[in-house]
Nucleic acid binder design. Sequence first.
DNA 1: TAATTATCTACTAAATATATAGACAATTTA
DNA 2: TAAATTGTCTATATATTTAGTAGATAATTA
Lengths: 153, 153
Amino acid sequence: MKPVLTNKGKYGLKAIVHLARLEAGETAQVADVAQRNNIPKKFLDAILLDLRNAGMLRSKKGPGGGYALAKPARSIKVGAVIRALEGPIAPIACASRSAFRACEDCGDIDTCPVRSVMSDVRDAIAGIVDNTTVADLVQRSTARAPLHADYAI
Amino acid sequence: MKPVLTNKGKYGLKAIVHLARLEAGETAQVADVAQRNNIPKKFLDAILLDLRNAGMLRSKKGPGGGYALAKPARSIKVGAVIRALEGPIAPIACASRSAFRACEDCGDIDTCPVRSVMSDVRDAIAGIVDNTTVADLVQRSTARAPLHADYAI
DNA sequence: TAATTATCTACTAAATATATAGACAATTTA
DNA sequence: TAAATTGTCTATATATTTAGTAGATAATTA
């Protein structure tokens, strides 16, 4: 298995977490997001545009402009970000729900053992990415203490 | 996400299921496995060699030779086949157990939200592929009736 | 010895990932 | 209105990976 999550997806997730940390009404510029996260600026341009076109971000041109979330971080699923930037999450097209396509070498799709196990994998991946939100990522990246730290002082 | 399971892995799984269906002591030749599964013969050569070197198959040269499983199908995990042919299953190197590698752009690996969620994804994938054996695949590809068909005649 | 079958090395072509360059459009502020 | 700023769009370039092919070599059997 080669890069399932490419740099594009990784950069996009890092950037949207960055934006989710902004105060309400605040915007961040691409150059700043790029620098703070070690992302090539021009590459990030295209990534943020994809996320904007997917409805997750809003943008504003000109001085004082920049990017911000278009909706609450808790309503943006990690799976949506990944699908917008990388396409379907299924390990193989014949196991995809959103972009199903039969293999040319496959005789009977209903009894294909590869498709069977890869469908299970697809569901397992979706179970994680569609039940984790950008807000969850913000919380994880902020919390440096172990879980249940609220029991401590 | 691009091809997580490439043709190499798909062909390898199909081939090992083919071999798992053989009678005990029987072997199959590469040309036959290739033809029956619509796999390019030369490509399959390299794939079976990898699986052999990983200890899952045994081979014999000359007339009457061929390939066979080196151990019971129920002891060969799908995850082992995939790892042998495609490398680590983690979606990103920083979330891999067997081939961990930090991202160059990552500041603090312990609080990286991308690594956190991708580690969950890795565990979810492993939960499937390391709990499914080649014997399971044989069973699935044979059973055409719905589950619990044993209640029917 | 001849036929068969796996094994090994090298190479090619196509697709994908990872950017970079530069013009253009919108907005703000002086 | 002019100038600076910032996002948007199109095109191009390079490196890596995938997917496969070609051909020689080694082992085994009949």
